[in-house]
Amino acid sequence: MIKKYKPLLYIILIVILLLIVFKQHEEKSMYEKHISLELNNDIQSLTNGIISNYNILDEIINSGKITKQQAQLLTQYSKDIVLMVNKYENLAISFNRPDNGRFNNETFNQAQKIFSFFFSIKGRDDFALDEMDETLIELDSKLTKDIKTLMTLHHHWLEASENHIYGVTIMDGYAEFQGNEYLNYYGDHSVTDLFWSDFIVELNEKTKIFLDQYEVNHIEELFEY
């Protein structure tokens, strides 16, 4: 009797195993989509912060002044850079992405200094909407030099962005980031694409190039304002 039902039992067992495998695959796919969505949004915030800061700094140099809105935006974008770089530098390290043991979160270290610089200019209080266009501070020679120094580092970061992030273009000194193109390009499975870790690694390399160029350990050593 048992022998008679053996083939049926084998078939039932195979079906159960297939259902388990399918369920695991489905759960893995859903988890991957969730993580990819978070990664896409975070890297988009990081890239947008770099590009927006660079363009605002360029506007400041051309106008010779910093408006309250510019100071607030620079502070916010710099905070985004600090948070996202720290998160994904640590993730890249856990993935053993850096090719050597000298990866020391250099971009995060300098981004913190930059955030503190802009925060000291802006102050603790937020500005009202009707005063955003008001001039917060006129550039003197020292602040002009600092803004140009910051532009130089952001330009290094901009080059890394253009090399690794789809939707980034630089034309005639102005940087653009097409967020929709970026999201459509990477889709739901970006976590398996190492573009983000390559981006983080090159950001770190570009930061070290900048520091070596000026022969300093921290960007704040160059600030005069």
Rank of each mutant, 00 (worst) to 15 (best):
N217F: 11
E134P: 07
N96G: 06
S116G: 06
G64Y: 08
N100A: 13
Y166V: 08
Y225Q: 11
D130R: 14
L91H: 10
F117Q: 09
S116C: 07
M1P: 12
I66P: 07
E138Q: 14
Y10L: 15
M84T: 09
K23I: 12
A160F: 04
K148H: 07
K206P: 10
F22W: 11
E220M: 01
N40R: 02
V21P: 04
N184V: 01
K28Q: 14
R102N: 14
K208E: 15
A160N: 04
Q69P: 08
G64C: 09
N217A: 02
I165D: 02
M171A: 12
M84R: 06
F22H: 01
M30Y: 08
I50R: 02
P98F: 06
E224P: 05
M30F: 05
E106N: 04
N62D: 13
I16E: 05
N55H: 10
H156Q: 15
F210C: 01
D172H: 14
F195I: 04
K122W: 00
K122E: 10
E27M: 03
Y31A: 14
A128D: 10
N109D: 07
L91W: 09
I12Y: 12
E106I: 05
N109C: 09
L136G: 04
K79Q: 14
K142I: 08
N100Q: 08
Q112C: 08
